[in-house]
Design a protein around this nucleic acid. Structure first.
Length: 270
DNA sequence: CGAGAGGCCTGAACGC
DNA sequence: TGCGTTCAGGCCTCTC
């Protein structure tokens, strides 16, 4: 399931193949993913040159002069650049034929992803109101502390709120909370400034490390060149409920927090 | 407004 | 072996 590092890895992998090249045609094999595919993908994108491949939160944007294709990989989506005659497989929902003979192919078994359109000089509603990027200068412990005052929600849910900070999904929030020694069920408004500083540092360090390593691979992610990532074995708590804590050896707790599977150490995280 | 629940979707894992 | 059930999860949307 692509989290921010996987999306960034995808962006970096796609950019050399797409930047400066024109989209020649769009092939839609079904009309919708999570939402209907934007009509502009077929009506306006063909003929346009891709000026840049950008990322905002977990969204990818293919910028052209008239607007940007806006993609989200959802949970099971992947994008690959393939020779134009590569046979189509199950769940290959969209092809963008790229100048030079290749095709950008969007595969998404669960169809939690989307392919929308952002007109030039506008901001798509899905991108409006998003919180800061976790690796930007505006994201730090002081920011989290200030925003969390009076919030009774679990700190884990708080950190996964896209209005608070983007791109911190269920895997990395578990790892960051473990690294910072904070219980995921603690009320967001009751975490001290000092501990939020540690948490922000942990988020930065873990995401930065994962990006440098090419992203975590669990079940569904395939990086653009087809090679799987290899970060999984480094996870401390995610997916390890019932196993020993890597620090103290006690059994890791598992429970649902905010309707999400959550694992933590009741001894090391308070 | 905040908090929590619901829903989308399919494949893998599991139980009988 | 085969089939039904459960779970997973990003994140928008609805309800209270």
């Amino acid at each position: 399931m692509p989290e921010l590092p996987e999306v960034e890895t995808t962006r970096a992998g796609l950019a050399p193949h797409l930047t400066g090249r024109r989209v020649l045609a769009a092939t839609l094999r079904r009309p919708d993913l999570r939402w209907p595919i934007a009509p502009e993908i077929a009506a306006e994108l063909p003929g346009q040159r891709i000026d840049a491949v950008r990322r905002r939160a977990k969204y990818l944007l293919l910028d052209t002069a008239v607007g940007s294709a806006l993609l989200h990989l959802g949970m099971s989506g992947s994008l690959r650049v393939l020779p134009g005659d590569t046979p189509v497989r199950a769940h290959d929902h969209v092809d963008l034929a790229i100048e030079g003979g290749h095709v950008l192919r969007f595969n998404d078994p669960r169809r939690f992803g989307c392919l929308l359109w952002q007109a030039a000089d506008s901001v798509h509603p899905l991108l409006a109101g998003l919180g800061p990027e976790p690796l930007s200068d505006t994201f730090d412990g002081d920011y989290l502390f200030a925003l969390s005052r009076g919030r009774s929600v679990a700190v884990k849910s708080f950190l996964m709120d896209q209005k608070v900070v983007v791109g911190v999904g269920n895997i990395y929030v578990a790892e960051a909370l473990f690294a910072a020694g904070i219980s995921p069920v603690r009320e967001a408004g009751k975490v001290s400034r000092e501990r939020y500083r540690g948490l922000a540092d942990a988020v930065r360090a873990i995401l930065g490390h994962a990006i440098a390593r090419g992203g975590t691979t669990l079940r569904d992610f395939i990086s653009p060149d087809g090679a799987p990532g290899y970060f999984e074995q480094e996870l401390s708590v995610y997916g390890r409920g019932g196993a020993p804590c890597p620090t103290c050896g006690r059994v890791l707790k598992q429970a649902m927090v905010g309707q999400r599977a959550t694992v933590w150490c009741g001894h090391c995280q308070r």
